[in-house]
Design a protein around this nucleic acid. Structure first.
Lengths: 350, 350
DNA sequence: CTGAAAGCGCTTACAG
DNA sequence: CTGAAAGCGCTTACAG
């Protein structure tokens, strides 16, 4: 179409617009004419024709457990950001952490002829990614790692250790961990890091205080309730995820306990809500957007045939009121005022 | 490829697999052979070739202000659900409510040859969608409506009225509205519905108590602070969005006021967090997922050449502790215990 | 420096 | 009922 108008052959136009073959593939005069008209017409090559010919779609499939989870949504934003910068477009979809859906959605992506996949939902109990690797499908993991597959994730183990150090400094000796889903490397590594860190500080966490649950507020609330139903009460609760931490705060409040005063609460990811909560939440900030960006860049290099190495991005603890640490100050910790405060509150308000 | 193996012509295979032309386009014996092998081989037609030939990509572009906002993420889940069911794939991206980005991302989608667009980010102050309509680009709005363009949204005005009715029943006469962004139909309609409803109940809201702000916790907190800084204090705050409501709760707590006891707080959308908050939040449930689903179905009909009519989905108020309504019971409303409760809390904990 | 041809994998009238 | 041809819009060696 451009070619006709310029009285040139379509191949010449293509050569120029793709700018390979030595300098430009045409005389500078011709090049200028082509570029000018392309600009003027807002010409965009038909990507379907290009894909058909080049066998490269510049399409990438992204799977996440749940896009309505702000952590995954933000990771996806990072993926998409890098994808756009590198000339790819992305399809995203939810797998709801269901292996069959993960499989079905991936096949759908592949039938759409994506060049590669980014998985934010790898399960340590499923061999799905192993199979894909065996089939030669290019992919990168993010959010959760698995096996030796290339990934860009947060150093969750270190994040867990930072939480342990913080709680030890505050003098906590009775710590419960809301450990998330047992098949997610995030929950596993954060929990292990915390338990290891505490152990090094001489604090052991009883098995009954490591409770698995979904990564949302309802899950955190249920897990916290389970812990609080026991005979002894922990002085600190580490939830491997901010939403679970919010749920834990709710469970505490139901028992007339206040986060940050009666029980320290620590979350993970430092979602924007953490600092805005009525009782601001201590949380480990993880570089979620960067994770997504890096994952996409790894995939790009993989697609270019390079060998890539997995990335572990550093987290950082952000201390707020929910673990402000009045522990060690008996006047505050045991303050009758605190008990009284909660006591007379009308039951109807909860 | 299937054709060769079967000793048939590719056109025969195509005819059968697409199942048009009378019964099936081939003899029942042939049909069976083709279907069997296609199944066996897991054959999927190359969508790029199909798109090139048919000039239909079965691709849809989706724009939202922010995918990390759970409301938009859930709407997108609905869009994607319907898209999958109807045989489309979707590209989603953020426009961050910036008109230039909205424009640029849309052009990018169009250059990818999407069949149509779903916009969750229409701005009442921008003529962008008007231009697109003039250019003949098929699209449907969701989340926010605008002009007469086809849309699937919540009946936000009615939702606002439900809030008004609830607050009137509780006896509130001093109500502030955190109205969201001034260019979003959601905020505008919810606010208008509430103000109209209150007015009919004889309650007028002073202009200074209708405050615009971003649709997030930080925005809600800032807006609430502005209201609370005034000489008179409202007895109820309606935030047109749950996250703004959470921010408002934070602002209240900073002033030693408790949501649901000192000041009623109502949100909108009934996000999953609302019921899980330490103080559960009264909120208007809006059918977000359905909105997305319906929008995609409208687009499908539009692409089929049908005339479509906009949809207004009904919301429903869900009452919780944050507006439990002790108003009218002076012993509780004015309870010195409440003041005392907040008073002695160590400043360091906030 | 530019043109002409082949071909990517489909679909769709049109023959036979 | 099935085949053969044309063509969607590109890219890429290959001529000249």
């Amino acid at each position: 179409m451009l070619a006709d108008e310029l009285g040139l052959h379509v191949s010449t136009v293509s050569r120029v617009l793709n700018g390979r073959y030595g300098a430009t593939g045409a005389g500078s005069e011709t090049v200028a004419r082509i570029r000018r008209l392309a600009q003027e017409r807002g010409y965009r090559p038909n990507p379907h024709a290009t894909s058909l010919r080049t066998r490269r779609s510049h399409l990438v499939g992204v799977l996440v457990p749940r896009l309505a989870d702000i952590v995954l949504a933000t990771i996806y934003e990072g993926v998409e950001e890098a994808a756009t910068a590198l000339g790819y477009s992305t399809f995203v979809t939810n797998s709801r952490d269901e292996p069959e859906l993960q499989r079905a959605k991936t096949e759908m992506m592949l039938s759409r002829r994506v060049d590669g996949m980014v998985f934010g939902d790898a399960r340590s109990d499923a061999r799905f990614v192993d199979e894909l690797a065996a089939r030669g499908v290019p992919f990168v993991l993010t959010n959760r790692r698995a096996g030796d597959h290339p990934s860009a994730t947060c150093d969750d183990y270190d994040g867990g250790r930072q939480v342990a150090r913080h709680l030890l400094e505050l003098g906590h000796e009775r710590v419960a961990v809301l450990a998330g889903e047992p098949y997610a490397s995030t929950g596993i590594d954060r929990t292990r890091g915390c338990l290891d860190g505490l152990r090094e500080g001489g604090v052991d966490v009883p098995a009954a205080w490591v409770v698995h649950s979904p990564f949302d507020a309802a899950g955190g609330r249920a897990a916290a309730e389970q812990v609080l139903a026991g005979p002894e009460r922990p002085t600190a609760v580490f939830a491997v995820n901010d939403f679970a931490a919010i749920g834990a705060m709710g469970a505490l409040r139901d028992r007339h306990l206040q986060a940050g005063e009666d029980v320290a609460v620590v979350g993970f990811n430092d979602t924007p809500l953490a600092r805005q909560l009525p009782i601001p939440l201590t949380s480990v900030r993880s570089p979620v957007r960067e994770m997504g960006r890096e994952a996409m860049q790894l995939l790009h290099r993989l697609l270019a045939g390079e060998a890539v190495q997995s990335l572990l991005l550093p987290p950082r603890l952000v201390v707020r009121a929910s673990s402000a640490g009045h522990l060690g100050d008996p006047a505050v910790v045991e303050a009758p005022a605190l008990t009284r405060r909660a006591g007379p509150a009308p039951a109807g308000s909860r």
